[in-house]
């Protein structure tokens, strides 16, 4: 394909605090594609998502990320969001006193303004909100409550997907959105995500479990280990991982990523 990918990650190295986590990630995600990232604990999955949205405390030390040809690393988090990058958080925060609906309208209008669209007034916003809430089966009374305050784990995740539906990002990152969800909540969340599938939108789905990928079927599956992609394949790779674990993959150490890392730099003084 001669069309440049929506997201292009090249030789990405990043630290969390002082610790090097990402050790050279190469990944291209085209519009319309869904990529899944799997991998053992500590392999760098969450760091990757945090780096992509510019969370403070994470630093890119080498390599680059371009989004629609623009250097993503240089952008403030709010600019990335306005440009169309969205992360559904693994652990959504609670913000007491800030009403969900007021927050959502502020966010929607910040993004509309960036795109050169008029602000939505209260009525138009409410109609849009009601329409999207139906998709994630959220009761209307949740909107007047403070952001995520007193929400169950499943409600928080649905609220994340609701935000995604409202903000209509072009690059959606889902960070273990399935964690802590029962099967009904998982179905609801997956339905919401599938509503977003389109030919001009890309998704990066980070998960521990094949289960989510039964609902959100990926085009590509990558295995992350020690901050690198060590294997890529199609959706069948996820099934294989489910059956066999990670141990069989070349370049992976099943339960101790750190040990493998140490072995690779065996020449260094210890």
């Amino acid at each position: 394909m001669s069309v440049s990918p929506l997201v292009s990650i090249k030789n990405l190295h990043a630290t969390a605090g002082e610790t090097p986590i990402l050790q050279g990630i190469d990944l291209e995600i085209g519009a319309g594609e869904i990529h899944a990232i799997m991998g053992p604990n500590g392999s760098g999955k969450s760091t990757l998502s945090n780096v992509l949205v510019g969370k403070p405390g994470y630093e890119v030390t080498q390599g680059e990320v371009s989004f629609r040809g623009e250097n993503l690393v240089e952008m403030d988090p709010e600019i990335r969001a306005r440009e169309g990058v969205f992360l559904a958080f693994q652990y959504p925060v609670e913000i007491p006193g800030v009403a969900n609906n007021y927050f959502l309208r502020t966010a929607v209008n910040a993004i509309r303004e960036h795109r050169g669209d008029e602000d939505l007034d209260a009525i138009d916003f409410l109609n849009l909100l009601k329409e999207k809430m139906k998709l994630v089966e959220m009761p209307e009374d949740m909107m007047g409550r403070a952001i995520n305050e007193g929400f169950s784990g499943g409600e928080k995740k649905r609220n994340e997907i609701l935000q995604m539906l409202l903000l209509e990002p072009s690059f959606c990152i889902l960070d273990e959105t399935d964690s802590g969800l029962d099967i009904d909540a998982l179905r609801i969340v997956a339905n919401g995500v599938n509503q977003m599938r389109s030919s001009d939108r890309a998704m990066l789905v980070i998960t521990h479990y094949q289960r989510l990928l039964d609902y959100i079927v990926p085009d590509y599956v990558h295995v992350l280990s020690n901050g690198r992609i060590v294997k890529s394949g199609d959706k069948s790779l996820a099934l294989e991982l489910e059956a066999k674990g990670y141990g069989w993959i070349d370049g992976i150490d099943d339960d101790a990523a750190g040990v493998k890392n140490g072995a690779a730099s065996a020449g260094a003084p210890s």
Binding site: P56, P77, E78, R80, I95
Partner: peptide, 29 residues
């Protein structure tokens, strides 16, 4: 709270607006 501040920014809300939203939330109670 820095986590909450980042969350709001990650939804496209500028930093000073995010701070205002949170401070307002603190008073709202």
């Amino acid at each position: 709270d820095t986590e909450a501040l980042f969350f709001l920014r990650a939804r496209g809300i500028g930093e000073s607006d995010a701070r205002l939203l949170m401070t307002r939330g603190f008073a709202q109670t």
